[in-house]
């Protein structure tokens, strides 16, 4: 199943659906499709119709705000002479939470087709559509993403904490989680 074909199908059949190809730099060459979250559920139903009937893995990733430094070369006129100058440009990429789905086809024995969805930011805009109505295997894994990262899945049949206890208020797998100082040894800096 070639990713570009899947992308073309998605864009053709769901109007307004933004699908971007995210290229993977490593030798594994597993590129992925970034689908916008408004059309997430529709896209999932279409993918299931393409016989991608097995959702193997649902992963949540935390991307905090980061600063990307790019060096841009540009030609500028300095003292009447055209020179090539290198400028350092810093762009701040806002933080977001991301969920990655790995889809396989059991009937055609193909895969993986990797699909991603991103939230708006890490604080208040953290809802994503739940793909549990399409693939039941996402049920526990989306609950885990909610428990450990704080992503709220719309349409999940039973969204509550799965690994930590009810009443726990932190999202431990986020990059900025600080564990409680419950140990005299650690508070004294002794490991």
């Amino acid at each position: 199943m070639i990713l570009e074909d899947v992308r073309a199908r998605l864009q053709a059949e769901i109007p307004g659906c933004q699908v971007d190809l995210v290229v993977n730099g490593s030798p594994s060459a597993q590129n992925s499709l970034l689908i916008d979250r408004q059309h997430g559920l529709e896209a999932a139903r279409l993918l299931r119709g393409l016989e991608l009937d097995y959702c193997s893995n649902v992963t949540a990733v935390d991307w905090p705000e980061r600063v990307q430094t790019d060096k841009i070369k540009s030609k500028q006129v300095v003292d009447g002479v055209e020179k090539e100058i290198e400028q350092t440009v810093k762009t701040t990429i806002p933080g977001y939470l991301e969920v990655v789905y790995h889809l396989f086809s059991m009937s055609k024995k193909e895969g993986p087709v990797v699909v991603r969805m991103r939230t708006g930011n890490r604080t208040d805009d953290v809802t994503l559509p739940s793909l549990t109505p399409v693939w039941r295997s996402a049920e526990f894994q989306e609950r885990e993403a909610f428990d450990l990262y704080g992503i709220v899945f719309d349409g999940h049949p039973d969204l509550r904490r799965i690994l930590m206890w009810e009443g726990f208020t932190d999202y431990p797998m986020r990059r900025d989680y600080v564990p409680p100082p419950d140990d005299d040894l650690e508070a004294l800096g002794e490991r």
Binding site: G167, P180, L185, E190
Partner: peptide, 21 residues
């Protein structure tokens, strides 16, 4: 008991002997 960030109390001081101390 289950607290919001961990267990309360974090240890039982009558039983626990902190090795550092």
């Amino acid at each position: 008991e289950f607290g919001e960030h961990g267990l309360e109390p974090a240890q039982n001081d009558e039983v626990f002997r902190n090795p550092l101390k």
